[in-house]
């Protein structure tokens, strides 16, 4: 089994705010991340697929195709957007990096051919904060 990773990036605004809580409770839990007028990040997204290299091409998967799938179904919907307001698949969810990684997994999965398995979504919110999601255990 070989693991193949493609890295992409997008810039977006968001805030962490639970509408079921009071303003004070949000401030207490999320601190400055709850700022009502948003803040933002340069997100780095690493998508890892796994499989056996094809004997004819030597590829686990054509990485250019992987890049295009990520761009069409993820980057196009997130880049230069407000994650809370503009992104259909984040509606009704808390826009944490954890939830965003899960949502990206679920968005990508139907678009990958059966020959490759999605292995990991690694999402950097800042150079020092990232999450990894490996699908349902």
């Amino acid at each position: 089994m070989v693991y193949l990773t493609r890295s992409e990036h997008f810039n977006a605004a968001h805030k962490l705010y639970n509408p079921a809580w009071s303003y004070e409770k949000n401030e207490q839990v999320f601190g400055k991340c709850a700022n009502e007028n948003w803040h933002g990040h340069n997100y780095e997204l690493l998508v890892t697929v796994k499989g056996q290299p094809d004997p004819d091409t030597g590829f686990v998967f054509d990485v250019k195709r992987l890049s295009n799938i990520i761009k069409d179904h993820i980057i196009e919907k997130l880049d230069h957007c407000n994650l809370n307001l503009d992104v259909s698949f984040m509606q009704g969810k808390m826009c944490s990096t954890e939830n965003l990684a899960i949502a990206i997994w679920n968005q990508l999965l139907p678009h990958l051919p059966e020959a490759v398995q999605l292995h990991c979504i690694k999402l950097y919110e800042t150079p020092r904060i990232y999450v990894e999601y490996y699908g349902e255990e």
Binding site: N11, A12, A13, H14, W38, H39, G40, H41, N42, D79, H80, C81, N82, L85, D86, T126, P127
Partner: peptide
């Protein structure tokens, strides 16, 4: 220029 803002590190 998108109206709902975006952001950066």
């Amino acid at each position: 220029a998108r109206p709902n803002y975006h952001g950066h590190n």
